[in-house]
Design a protein around this nucleic acid. Structure first.
Lengths: 121, 121
DNA sequence: AATATAACTAACTTTTTGGTAAGTAGCTTT
DNA sequence: AAAGCTACTTACCAAAAAGTTAGTTATATT
């Protein structure tokens, strides 16, 4: 009996690659906030999300920027001013995120009920 | 100047709730494998994914089952036999996952290029 | 009698992630 | 002259996630 890998190479696959970045604690939230506001400064995002630390906001923005999902514009002035907005690439991702959000909204109650009844059994 | 939270309550929001489960290292992979195969046994999923540990497969399946995305059917025999398949709820999520997968496939090269050029600067 | 089997579970270690608190820059306002 | 502003960075720490290894079960096979 031979063992074969049905779904080879999935670890180097695009989905995994993208989700590793998008699937962390804050990235999607940041993308959604930026999607609602066109342009935001660091502290505006910080306040919009409310409970993200400066460090995580900074790290997450950097990752999103590295992937080309978010654009960062620095104004060389003091105190500093930096503006963030979605790139076209970032914008092209958002509909899928929204679709997922829609599904989540629709099925949240069911899922919570499932979790609850699973625990009891 | 008042500080206001633009995007209140996002932490208790459905998207976050769902993504906390779906956005881990293995869940989406498992869903995709199950979507391609209708019914699979534990070891078949294990081999299909290739480098997931038994423990993580077990934990992930349990979470997916708890949320009602995956159905688990035990045959009371020895050696044991357990079959996994998507529930209707699970199936209803898959199109969105596939959409995300499609986006990832289309934009993977761009993203990798972005990352590479970001590092150099 | 020993070994194989399938689907796990338990205990433990390692790795990754995220949080906290403090510090930095240099100009402007008090 | 001290304090405030903005957008961070750094060092450190705790918690969470994931990996490793060994063990369990009870029957069937060699």
């Amino acid at each position: 009996m031979k063992k074969e890998v049905i779904f080879t190479d999935i670890l180097n696959c695009p989905v995994r690659n993208v989700l590793d970045r998008i699937g962390d604690k804050w990235s999607l939230l940041i993308l959604m906030v930026l999607n609602q506001n066109e342009v935001l400064r660091f502290n505006e995002i910080h306040q919009a999300i409310g409970d993200i630390s400066q460090k995580m906001l900074s790290v997450s923005l950097k990752n999103l920027e590295a992937d080309g999902l978010v654009n960062r514009k620095v104004y060389p002035q003091i105190p500093p001013k930096v503006e963030y907005k979605l790139t076209d690439l970032g914008k092209s991702l958002l509909p899928h995120v929204d679709a997922l959000a829609g599904w989540s909204n629709q099925n949240m109650q069911t899922i919570l009920a499932n979790r609850a009844s699973y625990q009891k059994s």
